[in-house]
Structures are given as structure tokens and as C-alpha cells.
Design a protein around this nucleic acid. Structure first.
Length: 209
DNA sequence: ACATTAAGTGATT
DNA sequence: AATCACTTAATGT
């Protein structure tokens, strides 16, 4: 199991740091659909994704969701970072998209390593940077793309993180992630199918990458 | 056979 | 693009 740590982080972290992570981090395995961090939850440790994918989403007053982005292996959640450092609560929900292996790092260590290891410092900063960019991308998607383009982007994204171009998902679930109605999704999928970009079956669909 | 859930469609705003 | 109302199709019990 330690090789997953090596695989994902050995290029970024110095050997000393890897050893410390190995000694202090708490390992956890979650199945698809499990909630890792929820709204208003106080976060006292930083999750690192070793294997799998996590989806990060936001929720409105009525409990309707909106997908923000996916986190893949070798990454961390910027929201958690900002929560830990500012001692505030999470404003997003993180849910396992696939079966996922995680490492949890206590905040105390995280602060200590910030000063001690250049690799850690860069990792945190880079993570912030890429999360910020991804968030901007989703803002662009929301603001400038129509639903059809959003849908296609979503499907391809999902296929990427799951490493499978056949997705096991219902139209209703897609609608929830995109914060639209099921009817709209069904219609657009039909349209995309006519363009031979997707193939729809019950509870399942294939995307052309 | 019946109930439940997923998906398709026309009409309206 | 959203919502309503209704149909059809697939699945579970």
C-alpha cells in the first residue's frame, strides 16, 4: 500500500517527508458514493487521494446539487486546505466517485511541514493553483456554454476520472450533477445520440472521447 | 400480475 | 431551458 504513496508523490516529496507521511497519515478506503467531507463540517485533517476519484459539489437551499469538479489521485482538496488553515467549516461536499483510497494528514503536521519541506510547500501551492483554475473553468462552463456543451463536457470528464467510457449512470443523476431537469438531459442525450457522440442504454451510456 | 423506477414526448411558458 | 402531464419500457417482488 505504501507504493501508492510512492507512485503518486515521490516526484514531489523528499524522502524524509514521504517517511513522515507514512508514519503519521491515517489511511482510509471509501466505496463509491460515500461522503468524505460534508457541508459545515469542521475539518481537522487534509485528505490526499491515492487512488480513485472524488467529486466536489455545492448545494443550494432546496438541497439541489451542482458539481464543481473532480479530484483524482495525487491531488488534494483545496477547500479542506483553506478550512484547516482558516479554522472554518467546509462549504462543499466531497463524495467518492469511485472506490477511493485516501490518506488523512492531521492539520498540525500540515503546518509543521509547510515550514520544513519545500516539496510540501510547493504541493500545497500547486494544488491551490490547479483547483483555482478548475473552478474558473467550471464558472466559464456555467456562464458561456449551453446545456448541450455542458453535458458533453460532464460526460467526458466523468469518463476520464473513472477511466471508463461506459458510464453507469441514470439521466436523473446527471441532471442532479448539472443542476437541471431530467427531461432536459434525456432530450439532449437523444440529440447527442443522433450525432453519434453517445449511445444510451438503460442505466448506462457510452461516450465517444 | 402489479408496483416501481427509468426514459421518451408534446405542449406551454 | 424549465415544467407539466402523460406514455412507454424495463425491472423488481
Amino acid at each position: 500500500m505504501e507504493n501508492k504513496l510512492q507512485q503518486n508523490f515521490q516526484h514531489l516529496f523528499e524522502p524524509e517527508l514521504l517517511k513522515e507521511i507514512d508514519e503519521t497519515a491515517i489511511r482510509k478506503h471509501v466505496e463509491a458514493g460515500e461522503i468524505i467531507v460534508d457541508f459545515d463540517q469542521t475539518v481537522s485533517s487534509i485528505p490526499l487521494v491515492l487512488e480513485g476519484a472524488v467529486k466536489v459539489l455545492r448545494e443550494d437551499e432546496e438541497g439541489e446539487e451542482l458539481l464543481l469538479y473532480f479530484i483524482e489521485s495525487g491531488d488534494t482538496c483545496a477547500m479542506t486546505l483553506s478550512c484547516c488553515m482558516g479554522h472554518t467549516q467546509s462549504r462543499v461536499r466531497a463524495e467518492a466517485e469511485t472506490a477511493t483510497d485516501l490518506l488523512f494528514i492531521p492539520v498540525r503536521k500540515m503546518e509543521e511541514w509547510m515550514a520544513k519541506y519545500r516539496g510540501w510547500q510547493r504541493f500545497i501551492l500547486d494544488s491551490y493553483h490547479s483547483r483555482m483554475n478548475e473552478l474558473l473553468e467550471t464558472v466559464d462552463t456555467l456562464a458561456f456554454l449551453n446545456m448541450e456543451q455542458r453535458l458533453l463536457r460532464y460526460l467526458r470528464d466523468k469518463a476520464m476520472v473513472t477511466g471508463n467510457d461506459t458510464l453507469q449512470v441514470t439521466h436523473k443523476q446527471i441532471a442532479q450533477d448539472l443542476h437541471t431537469s431530467r427531461v432536459v438531459v434525456s432530450r439532449l442525450l437523444k440529440k447527442l445520440e443522433r450525432q453519434e457522440v453517445v449511445e444510451v442504454r438503460r442505466n448506462e451510456l457510452w461516450v465517444k472521447l
